[in-house]
Design a protein around this nucleic acid. Structure first.
Length: 175
DNA sequence: CGTGTTTGACCGGCGC
DNA sequence: GCGCCGGTCAAACACG
């Protein structure tokens, strides 16, 4: 997996948290102050995608953050440079179906959090996109979804995936 | 029968 | 070196 075109328009709003004094739990804190650039209409999209999921929950606090994880494994540089996208969504359900098919492969309890974290992986062959879903112990209504990697294949489920919604939104927004 | 979930074991990195 | 901790594996299980 090299540089596939990311499915999220992610150009300018990029800040890396690797230089900060991130202790272990500072990473979760950073998710809250993700800069939302008004340029991409993506956040609005995310807002719209969680509404039809199950529970119109009206309060939307999602932030997005991307950091390229390079060179954090051993010494020097690293072969796999993963892109990580962390979303924070206010929803009652953990499963935010984005149109891809995910297989759960693990669940662990994290410290400083009473809710477990779930690990998912894309079921396409050759597609190593992973995501992990976690919710905050402080506010159980907030779900943090972290995508890792980029999909190298089209979306399978053509019905009500959010990219489909996005394309329609773009069509409508062009008027 | 195929596909996805559950869940304890396992493993590697890191701090002490 | 050891133990903790976060991430992954895989066998058993559930469900259509």
């Amino acid at each position: 997996m090299e540089n596939y075109p990311p499915m999220f328009p992610s150009s300018s709003s990029q800040f890396s948290l690797m230089n900060n004094n991130n202790t272990t739990h500072a990473k979760e804190e950073l998710l809250f102050q993700g800069k939302k650039t008004t340029s991409n209409g993506f956040l609005g999209l995310m807002a719209s995608m969680e509404t039809p999921s199950s529970d119109m929950n009206s309060g939307i606090t999602n932030s997005m953050e991307q950091n390229e994880v390079k060179s954090c494994k051993k010494k020097g540089e690293k072969k796999i440079k993963n892109l990580r996208y962390a979303f924070q969504t206010r929803s009652q359900v953990d499963i935010l179906d984005d149109g891809y098919r995910w297989r759960k492969y693990g669940q662990k309890a994290v410290k400083n959090n009473k809710f477990p974290r779930s690990y998912y992986r894309c079921t396409h062959q050759g597609c190593n996109v992973k995501k992990q879903v976690q919710r905050l112990s402080k506010d159980g209504g907030v779900v943090v979804t972290t995508y890792e990697g980029m999909h190298s294949h089209p979306i399978e489920n053509s019905t009500d995936n959010f990219e489909h919604i996005l394309s329609q939104m773009q069509i409508y927004a062009s008027f």
